[in-house]
Structures are given as C-alpha cells and as structure tokens.
C-alpha cells in the first residue's frame, strides 16, 4: 500500500514540470483565447477586467456575414491559402515520391542534399529566396538566358490565371460571393505567392522524401522480382506493385501536407508581409497582423479559431483515413 502511494507521488513529481508548462502555454491559452475572441479587447490591461466590451459572436459574424473590410481581408486570405494548398500539396508529394524513387538504394550524399533544406532556419532560407527572386536576381537572370522577361516577383499582384487569359469578362467582376468578386476568387495565385510556393516545395520535399524512402525499403524485394519474372515492364511494376504498397504513406504525406500548408507563416512574414495587394495574405498572417498591428485582439483570435477549426477538420480527415487502413 505504501509503495503504491509512493509510486503515485513519484509519477506525478516526474511529470509535474511538463504538466505545468504544457498546461500554462498550450491548454490555458486556448481557453483564454476563446474568451478574448468574444470580446473587443484592445491589448490594454487584462482582458478579464470589467471595462472590456463583450461582443459575443460579433467578431465571427464580421468574418463571415457582414460586408466590410474584415470579411474582405479574411476571405482574401482564405482564397490565397486555398490556392497555396492546392499547388503545394500535390507538388511536394509528387516531388518527394520522385526523389525517393531516384535516391532509393543510392549513396547517402543525395539524400543529405535533398533533406538539408528542411532542417535549416525558415527565416534564413526565406532571405536567400528573396534574393534569388529579386528583380535582377538569379531566377530572372536564368529566365533572361531563355529569352523570357521575368516578372517583378514581389510587386506584381496579378494572378497567374489572369496573366494567362488576360483581362476578365465583366460578368465575373461585377458579381461575387462572400465579399469578393468571382474574378477575385478565380484569378489564381499571384506571382509573389508562386515564389513562396517554390520555396516551400523546395524545403519540405526532403522531409516527405524520407517517409517515402522508409516505406520503399519496407517493400519486400520478392514482390518486384515476381513481377519482373512475369514480364512486367518498369512502369507496370511501379504502378501495379510499388504504388499500391505506398498507399498508406501516400495518405500520410498528403494529410500532413494539408495540415502543414494551412499554417504557412514564417515565409510570408519575411518575404512579403501579405503584399503585393494582399495576394500573399494568409489566415495565419492575417490573425497576427490583426492582433499585433491593428490591436484588434478579439478579431485576431477569432481568425485563429477559424483556422484552428480548418486544421482540426484536416486532422480528423487524416485520422479517419488512417483508421480505414487499419480495419
């Protein structure tokens, strides 16, 4: 009996520091933020003192139903992030798989080279890409060699679809939904966003490559050999044998990508601050800006919570997919 009590005590003493830190800085903040998102707190004094206006669901209403700058900015950030997710996730997954296939059974030099970008500081690497994509930078010099006049990457707000099809039909610019015109929704990511996309795909592919590599190395050699004896071509062996075996990893990489891409922040902060013309504004950066630059903490936290909800949905989706696999 005494030893049971002692083990209880020892157990809690061992976990106490972690419990305090995680409780104070992971769980408590969420509860406090939930409260602040229902207020109009401006950052002065404590958000719990008497004078802080309670606004109920107003902050959320301004994001979704009321016409105004708040909704316009928020919907713009959603639009930008949707394009970002739609391009980054397939690209990084395909590139990671491709790299894993070419470095499989190779010397580790190439693995190291492809993985290295993902361990470096996101701020430092953003600075490097800012230089590479500057007006007379490396990318534009390479484009010039090919006879292409490169864009001013971080000052041209036009979307890539707009660049391809030219000026929009009036029908699309006169009407809209959720505070943005149809054309706003459809004109595609700006070239600035494309530069950020290039950077992120370049940094994260290495991480996902390692996941594919681990999965590739778990595929029994006999399978591939059997297919070879049956006369399957290289492509058939890949699409009928290797790819189905990689399915669980593929799901994992896709869903981790879906969760991660909604959180893009560092690169936006360093490279564009949401510019040009708000085309690289994302919900994460918008919530930061709203709280710490406009001192509208209630609205900033409300945006965080909506983003949280989006990410939770992605996570639940991942859990659901992984459960399917186990069954």
């Amino acid at each position: 009996m005494r030893s049971r009590t002692r083990e209880n005590l020892a157990g809690w003493l061992f976990v106490a520091p972690v419990v305090v830190i995680l409780g104070l800085f992971m769980l408590l903040p969420i509860l406090m933020a939930l409260w602040v998102s229902l207020t109009g707190w401006n950052g002065q004094g404590s958000p719990f003192r008497a004078g802080v206006p309670f606004v109920g669901g107003d902050n959320y209403a301004r994001l979704f139903t009321e016409d105004g700058l708040a909704r316009e900015d928020f919907m713009t950030s959603i639009r930008n992030n949707v394009y970002y997710v739609a391009v980054v996730v397939p690209l990084q997954t395909a590139l990671a798989l491709f790299l894993a296939l070419v470095v499989n059974k190779r010397r580790t030099f190439f693995r190291t080279a492809f993985y290295f970008p993902s361990v470096t500081s996101s701020v430092a690497i953003s600075v490097v890409f800012l230089f590479i994509f500057s007006n007379s930078g490396a990318v534009n010099q390479l484009l010039a060699l090919a006879g292409v006049d490169g864009p001013k990457w971080f000052s041209d707000p036009r979307g890539v679809i707009q660049l391809l099809v030219g000026d929009p039909p009036a029908a699309l610019t006169e009407h809209g939904v959720l505070g943005l015109t149809w054309w706003d929704w459809l004109s595609g990511p700006s070239v600035a966003m494309c530069a950020i996309i290039a950077l992120v795909v370049w940094t994260t592919s290495g991480t996902f490559m390692l996941m594919f590599l681990a999965a590739l190395q778990n595929i029994p050699k006999a399978l591939d050999e059997a297919a070879m004896i049956d006369g399957a071509t290289r492509w058939q062996r890949f699409s009928r044998v290797t790819l189905p075996m990689l399915k669980p990893t593929m799901f994992l990489v896709l869903t981790l990508g879906l969760i991660g891409t909604w959180q893009v922040f560092d690169q936006i902060y360093v490279m564009s601050q949401g510019n040009p013309a708000k085309t690289t504004l994302t919900p994460a950066f918008l919530s930061y800006r709203t709280a710490f630059r406009d001192f509208d903490y209630g609205m900033g936290t409300a945006i965080s919570f909506v983003l949280f909800l989006i990410i939770v949905l992605m996570t639940l989706f991942q859990r659901w997919v992984m459960r399917e696999r186990k069954a």
């Binding site: 976990v15 419990v19 995680l22 104070l24 800085f25 992971m26 769980l27 408590l28 903040p29 969420i30 406090m32 933020a33 602040v36 404590s46 958000p47 719990f48 969760i259 909604w262 959180q263 922040f265 994460a284 919530s287 930061y288 709280a291 710490f292 903490y297 900033g300 936290t301 965080s304 919570f305 983003l307 949280f308 990410i311 996570t315």
Partner: peptide, 28 residues
Amino acid sequence: GLFATVIAVMAVPGVVLFIPKFLVLNQL
C-alpha cells in the same frame, strides 16, 4: 489520461497559439 493529453497537445497547430500564448505571457 495524461498520455492522451500529451498526444492531443502534439496535434494542436502552433500557428493558432500565437495570440493565445501572448495572452498568457501578458497575464503572467
């Protein structure tokens, strides 16, 4: 229960905690 909480905390996305963390630091 504690281990389940640790797992749950791992799943909380860092970006949504920016402002909340500031609130706690400010309050403390």
